[in-house]
Design a protein around this nucleic acid. Structure first.
Length: 378
DNA sequence: ATGTCC
């Protein structure tokens, strides 16, 4: 095994199989980024795809220097998984959708505290609290489809009779404000981590990381409250952030951009809205820079989706999937941009990591209801 | 990605 770990250069590793489709531009971006000063090691995940200058689905190890632009605006973006007490057989889709209601408006401070009495202060960024955001962000009710590791599934409390809830969201406007300010002042260059600029960024980055995690918790609690259910958060893993690490005895900074942290317990990896999501246990991931794929990875650019799909599918048709799940999305553009056809098969991404001995699958889930946005655009 | 830009 381990045949899906491909060295692209002295300092670049790519986790991919021959069957896995990867865009040339993404590999190009990976190689270009690897030549930046003080970037020592680079690992491409099997969901690697092109980003704005830098690839998405990769981890970068630097010494001394931080590259805020590598992380991008959505600092702290991540995935959480909850086990809910919503009984599958006691609920139908229509009832669930009705109860879920509209969660597009930010929660007031009082609502936040009511949902989560132990919440830490969210400072001035209350405006987006409890909201999912746009783009590829979503909340999804799911049901267990296959359990691969019954003992682990039992230990963490996975329950076949009850729905699971997955939340994908980030730091909303906060991370973007931090990056914009930083880029205006210093551009895209790397900054010494313990210098003034570097340490200021790192402090703000840590706040955004914290805010993003709290916001996912709020979203989860908000949805559970609407469903009149309880729930337990099983997993919360960020895929856009920087953390200090020591690799081969050298201390430095691990930058993850669309790469899930593999050092913080189980990881939930979503497929497209018409595909499975996998709960996995990370194994030895040092070859992948302690990271894993964060999803299926885009196959088509956002801008190409409508042109490729509009002749075949109406927006209405895109609100139903092959799994019989429903997509709550009143934004027609987003329905096309996030169509399952725009993403790779999650099985191909998972297979690459299994073959590389990076993960052990624990269970997989199928979508029941995917919530994007309920409110019509003006 | 964006209490988003046209």
């Amino acid at each position: 095994m381990g045949n899906s770990i491909q060295p692209l250069a002295d300092n670049i590793t790519l986790i991919a199989t021959p069957e896995l489709w990867l865009e040339g531009e993404a590999i190009q971006q990976l190689q270009t980024t690897a030549t930046l000063p003080n970037i020592k090691l680079v690992a491409g995940m099997p969901d690697l795809h092109p980003g704005r200058g830098y690839p998405v689905g990769a981890a970068f190890f630097t010494t001394q220097y931080l590259y805020p632009a590598l992380i991008g605006g959505d600092i702290g973006c991540g995935m959480s998984l909850w086990q809910t007490t919503v009984k599958i057989h006691a609920m139908n889709q229509a009832k669930l959708i009705k109860r879920l209601g509209n969660i597009d408006q930010p929660l007031s401070e009082a609502e936040c505290i009511s949902l989560w009495p132990d919440i830490r202060p969210l400072a001035e960024h209350m405006y987006a609290s409890g909201t999912i955001g746009g783009g590829n962000h979503f909340a999804e009710l799911q049901m267990l489809e296959t359990i691969y590791a019954p003992e682990t599934a039992r230990q963490i409390g996975l329950n076949r009779q009850h729905l699971q809830l997955m939340v994908h969201s980030g730091s909303r406007g906060l991370g973007g404000v931090i990056l914009d300010k930083h880029i205006r002042q210093y551009g895209h260059q790397g900054l010494v981590a313990d210098g003034t600029a570097g340490s200021t960024y790192l402090m703000q980055h840590n706040q955004a990381l914290d805010y993003a995690q709290q916001n996912r918790e709020l979203i989860g609690r908000r949805i559970l409250a609407n469903l009149r259910a309880q729930g337990q958060k099983l997993v919360d893993i960020s895929h856009n952030f920087i953390e200090p690490v020591t690799i081969n005895g050298e201390s430095g900074w691990l930058h993850r951009k669309g790469a899930a942290a593999a050092t913080k317990g189980l990881v939930i990896i979503p497929g497209s809205r018409a595909d499975f999501s996998y709960l996995v246990q990370p194994l030895d991931t040092v070859s992948a820079l302690y990271s894993l794929a964060h999803g299926a990875g885009r196959k088509w650019q956002r801008s190409a989706c409508k042109g490729r799909l509009a002749g075949y599918y109406t927006a209405e048709q895109l609100t139903r999937t092959v799994h019989g799940s429903r997509v709550i999305c009143c934004d027609r553009e987003l329905l096309y941009e996030e169509a399952p056809q725009a993403y790779k098969s999650i099985d191909s991404v998972i297979a690459a990591m299994v073959q590389a001995d990076l993960i052990r699958p624990i269970a997989r889930f199928k979508p029941v209801i995917t919530y994007k946005v309920q409110t019509e655009k003006k």
